[in-house]
């Protein structure tokens, strides 16, 4: 009896190392597939309504500005996308936003720390997916949303509750695996 328990005790460090190894393997795999981001900052806004804000329109875009009142009691779930013309991943995700807009999904934009002329040129060149677009040149509204980099995308349900936040570009995979199921669930 004593010898078996001692043998088990000898196995304890091995077991700990194995558990640690399994944990690190899961983390590495998650980093590979994008499901785990060690530098990701979890959003505290998920489950809450959008913070109060009013942002002016970008005149050249030809769509109204954005305020929190436009994010309450919606006919369908919406996307809110923080972007900037100087942000390279924003170029990567732009086709996916255009696809959603073509399908009739309401995509609202917040233009972060950008010059109006640059933002207008970006949209003129790549198309405007936004039903509404607010300019946040000082970046203060982005801080109220807990944004820590562009692009960032939020999905709000019909009541205006933030259901999901994605820091980083909306790739075709993110669109298929995350955004479409969310839009269906909250439709």
């Amino acid at each position: 009896m004593a010898t078996t328990s001692r043998r088990l005790l000898m196995l304890a460090p091995l077991g700990l190392a194995a558990a640690g190894g399994a944990g690190f393997y899961a983390m590495l795999r998650g980093m590979g597939t994008g499901s785990y981001d060690p530098k990701g900052v979890p959003s505290v806004l998920v489950g809450k309504p959008a913070p109060a804000f009013v942002l002016p329109a970008l005149d050249e875009a030809g769509v109204p500005g954005l305020e929190d009142a436009a994010l309450r009691d919606l006919p369908a779930p919406v996307l809110v996308n923080f972007w900037a013309s100087w942000c390279v991943p924003c170029i990567v995700e732009h086709p996916q936003l255009m696809t959603l807009a073509r399908e009739g999904v309401p995509v609202f934009g917040i233009n972060y720390k950008d010059k109006p002329a640059d933002a207008a040129a970006f949209l003129a060149r790549r198309g405007n997916p936004f039903l509404r677009l607010g300019r946040d040149e000082p970046g203060r509204v982005a801080i109220d949303w807990g944004v820590y980099g562009v692009p960032e995308t939020y999905v709000l349900d019909r009541k205006g509750i933030i259901r999901w936040r994605w820091p980083g570009p909306v790739t075709p995979e993110v669109l298929q695996q995350d955004i479409r199921p969310l839009l269906r669930r909250h439709a």
Partner: peptide
């Protein structure tokens, strides 16, 4: 903290 959570 209200905006960025414990991480900040």
């Amino acid at each position: 903290h209200d905006r960025y959570g414990d991480f900040v």
